[in-house]
Every structure is written in C-alpha cells, then in structure tokens.
Design a protein around this nucleic acid. Structure first.
Length: 211
DNA sequence: AACACGATGGACT
DNA sequence: GTCCATCGTGTTA
C-alpha cells in the first residue's frame, strides 16, 4: 500500500468514472503550497451521460476531456467560475471536485477566498479552483507527473461515503440526475451533505453500472 | 454572425 | 427563497 503523500499513478484514472470518483474521496490535490483533502465529487461518465460536457463529443473546449487520462480538465462556468475535473477512463469521462477540506496552505486559501474561514471556503466546485489558484492555463496539466503544477496524492481514506442526486443540470435525462453520480464523505462539515444523500451501497453501485 | 444558456456563488428578501 | 454577474460554448443560420 502506497504511503500517504505518494502521487496517485496514471492507472488510478483508467477506470469507470464512478469508481474513480469513489476512490478519490479522501485523497489530496496540491497546487503550490495549497493542499486540499477531497470531500465531495461528481462523476461524469462519457458521451452517453446527458449531464456531461462529453455529450457533444470532442470539441475545442473538451479536447482535454477526450485526451490522456490522469490530466486536469479545467473550464469556465457561468463566465465566472473555474471548475477542476480529473480525466478518467479515456472516453470523455471525468470527475469534478465539488468540495474539500484544507490540509495546508490555509493562508493562501483565505487570501484567494476573500478572507473567509470555515467550510464556506471550500464547499462548491468554483471555490475549489479559486482556493487552489487553478484556471485556464492549468487545463491539460498532468496529475501524476511530479513536476506538474497540480498533483493528486494519497490522503486519508474516508470512513463513510454518501451518494446523492446531481444539482444544476435541469437539462439532463432524469436517469442521469439520481444517485449515485454525486458522492461525499460522511460525517464532515467540509462537504455538502443534504438529507437527499445516503450511504453508497454495493447494490446501488451495481444498478448504476448497468445503465 | 447572432443567439441562448450554463457541471456557480454571493448578495439580498 | 430570489436575483444576477459575466463570457465561452454549442447551435443555428
């Protein structure tokens, strides 16, 4: 078993987006002096996922999404917020980081987030990229290269994983809205945990996998 | 070339 | 709960 702080290998990303999403919970993402423990994510499973950018196929925006696995897919949302995704499987699949807990670099995080404090610093995908200082120039960055500006490293595995419905994707097919595309660590204030989220069971995972 | 709208967040009622 | 900033993208023409 790899020790804490070791960079996750390329192979980590060579799987179904739902499995990558589940296993990246508790891992750490680093940019400069800021390190965050990932507490909430959302899986986007390739072109067949009606909530995913990949539904349009490969376009100028999504070329990194269809590029090599284990790289960052960064894009601008609502003209304001940058989103950080991890490219998975190699078919346009990805995992969006939606919330995190500070591990180090709190001073930098607070500075970038307007001097705020507590979970409000990092609960929300736009806040993650903001706190890390990630934007357009990081699109395509390799996450397993030690010399890369952004890396994902071994963290602390969560005790409980919750699954819940997606938000902000009214245009998607209802089957792509319900659990378990959105996953969170249970029992922490550093993630959104609405009542609609419940423990991720093997039965639910298998049911989703067939779609 | 014009258009509609989005994988959001913050301010406000 | 409501409003809306702000701009790249995909769609249509």
């Amino acid at each position: 078993m790899a020790e804490r702080g070791a960079i996750l290998p390329r192979e980590f990303y060579a799987r179904d987006a739902l499995d990558v999403a589940r296993d990246v919970l508790g891992q750490h993402v680093r940019h400069g002096d800021v390190i965050l423990r990932i507490t909430e994510v959302e899986a986007y499973r390739g072109p067949s996922d009606t909530a995913a950018h990949a539904r349009f196929g490969s376009t100028p925006r999504t070329r990194t999404l269809f590029g090599p696995i284990g790289h960052a897919y960064v894009y601008l949302c609502y003209g304001i917020h940058w989103m950080l995704n991890l490219v998975a499987r190699g078919d346009g699949s990805a995992v969006l980081i939606r919330a995190a807990e500070p591990v180090s670099g709190l001073a930098s995080i607070r500075e970038r987030r307007g001097g705020k404090d507590g979970p409000i610093l990092l609960t929300g995908p736009g806040k993650i990229a903001s706190a890390l200082g990630v934007e357009r120039r990081h699109d395509g960055a390799c996450l397993y290269d030690p010399d890369s500006p952004i890396t994902v490293v071994r963290g602390v595995r969560p005790k409980e994983i919750l699954a819940g419905p997606r938000v902000g994707i009214d245009y998607a097919d209802p089957q792509h809205v319900v659990a378990p595309w959105r996953l969170a660590i249970g029992g922490t204030a550093w993630s959104s945990q609405p009542k609609s989220m419940s423990p991720l069971t093997e039965a639910v995972r298998k049911q989703r996998r067939r779609r």
